[in-house]
Nucleic acid binder design. Structure first.
Lengths: 344, 344
DNA sequence: ACGTTGAATGTTAACGCTCACAATTTCTGT
DNA sequence: ACAGAAATTGTGAGCGTTAACATTCAACGT
């Protein structure tokens, strides 16, 4: 036996095999596969039958090599176990799939410039056609902004960055809504449990809160700072429970609000009778806190979908036709954790 | 100008360009890139310098085409916005990255056999070298079992399936721990809020609960059935709050426990004084429920990592050497939502 | 000094697909 | 019935990389 082994080798069928079986040229098979015009119905049928019979699968690497398109998009995520990022990722994936793309994920431990650059590079080397960066921190956004990349990149997060296309949430607006609602109910002022200082979401929500207070001529209390976790909300809550004149608290996210509620409960401060509490995000559990949490809803899935839409726009090349900054406004959801001021 | 345009075209550099600049053959460049032996240090240096100068990036499609290895793994996920799946995905991604693989995700809406098969096929067509299926439902597991696939597949979830390599959690064991702990505290029996009937997790936890009761000679109450959501736990809680002789409830997950706690609170049933509550999962928020929730902890990240490890084992070919079913035992975490029986 | 070895490098041929173009067939209208 | 157009099919040449083999070159022992 020579090097060219005989017969029944069990290798994956390739286009040529299909062509031979169908009695056509490989090019015709390619045409059928890609829905090219000018293929007679019966030849198409013959080719399809051959494909079925051999269970032929086109080799995506070969196709990618020649077309220079990988049909793959990259996502750089962060803290992807949190509800927000996970939902965005989900939204992105759904949208990508229905647009015919695959999604390669890289989830980061840290969002410093180098990590982001590295992640994007990795993805690019991999041949992705575009990248979505879930970039909630200041450092990440600036990293994305000065990213040297030959592939289109869009960011999703907060901020007013204009150097890179992005979709963002009206955090300032949402925080303003929350704060305003509390003021409207007669609260003299509103305390705030902020998120980490280097997150844009934190900054924007804090700013929305602050400016609303200032516009209303209300005093601006010292912020308590947490790290998004229920634990940190609890600790902030312990401190706040000790302040007798607090009647309203706006938490930068629902998890911290949960911790806060626990601390207030332990401290014997009734919600909402003594203290009103508002969160941010409207995670699915928020309606089942004790008491049910008034919060600012943002649709993470939608956020992801829009980000992908933006990216696809960039890819289609009509980069300048679509607006490169999409903003989604959140919405205040009223529940029982908020009430009017009751004079003691 | 002819078709062969002159000069300063801005196209990506390829291996040949590097070779020319370094004054070697493209094969030598390849050797340097792949760390092959027999390259003189100074030529290696020259090549690396050329690579840097041109900012050359190897084309992964070309490499994949010839090596038949895509350096990519697939993950089929489900309900990936939940804490559990999201954490597993995260664990998988981390592990994959450090093993030099990329991860392509597909997240499913439904887990029927066809969807799973379709997702795996999509991934396979894409050229992934292996697939992890996060398959918590009965239907998914059997789908995976009868999956016709030329790529290695491992599942992560519950169940005792032996036809496909998998890593699973000792749900029965965990549920038994929880139930046993309540019985030890003097509760006559333990009620159960189960998850959806078609999830393996549900079935196993229910079975662990039931068999522990039976072993202790305790009566087995009717189960309440939820859908994992806090909402469904709340509704179960409304019903349970109406039953005067309930003193202990084991919920199949923490979210339902949250809803239950809310319902009991509204119904004026004190936890743990009147009713003890135990959850499952130990999501990060569980410690901040009112009261803090006793629950069964499972390490989702570890689960994902182990699944990937298993998959890598399959890939290395020592398929039969490693055990093909890894089981991870969860652990009961004691908090204030549980107490001894207090006779009224 | 010289063949022999092994290290270092080069050459050629795939990998499986799409693109550009050539060749062939099948319709048109008159 | 026949030129010309249109539809349909085939041919050859890459895409950028690695694998297999061929070649060159320095070093060694005798």
């Amino acid at each position: 036996m020579g090097t060219e082994s005989a017969g029944t080798e069990q290798r994956q069928p390739v286009m040529a095999d299909v062509a031979k079986l169908a009695g056509v040229s490989h090019q015709t098979v390619s045409r059928v596969l890609n829905g090219a015009p000018h293929v007679r119905p019966d030849t198409r049928e013959r080719v399809l039958a051959a494909i079925r019979e051999l269970d032929y699968r086109p080799n995506s690497a070969a196709r990618a090599l020649v077309t220079r398109r990988s049909q793959t998009l990259g996502v750089v995520s962060f803290e992807s176990t949190l509800y927000g990022p996970a939902s965005m990722l989900d939204g992105i994936e759904q949208a990508a799939r229905s647009a015919g793309y695959f999604v390669s994920v890289t989830s980061l431990r840290s969002l410093d410039g180098r990590s982001v650059q590295e992640a994007v590079d990795r993805l690019r080397d991999r041949g992705v056609e575009g990248v979505v960066v879930i970039a909630p921190q200041t450092s990440a956004v600036s990293a994305v902004a000065r990213l040297s990349s030959s592939v289109p990149v869009v960011a999703v997060g907060s901020g007013n960055q204009t150097q890179v296309p992005m979709v963002s949430v009206g955090n300032r607006f949402g925080a303003g809504q929350a704060t305003g609602h509390l003021l409207d109910l007669g609260h003299r002022t509103v305390h705030h449990v902020a998120g980490p200082a280097n997150w844009l979401e934190s900054q924007d929500r804090e700013e929305g809160w602050r400016s609303t207070l200032q516009a209303a001529g209300a005093p601006v209390p010292e912020v308590e700072r947490g790290d998004w976790s229920a634990r940190s909300g609890y600790q902030a809550g312990l401190r706040i429970a000790g302040l007798p004149d607090v009647t309203a608290v706006f938490c930068a996210n629902d998890h911290m609000a949960l911790g806060l509620l626990r601390a207030l409960n332990e401290g014997g401060r009734a919600v909402p009778e003594e203290i009103s509490v508002v969160g941010f995000d409207d995670i699915p559990e928020a309606a089942y806190f004790i008491p049910p949490l008034t919060t600012v809803r943002q649709d993470f899935g939608e956020l992801g979908r829009r980000a992908l839409e933006l990216l696809l726009g960039e890819l289609e090349g009509d980069a300048r036709s679509a607006p490169s900054h999409v903003r989604i406004q959140p919405e205040l959801v009223l529940r029982r954790s908020v009430g009017p001021v009751v004079r003691r």
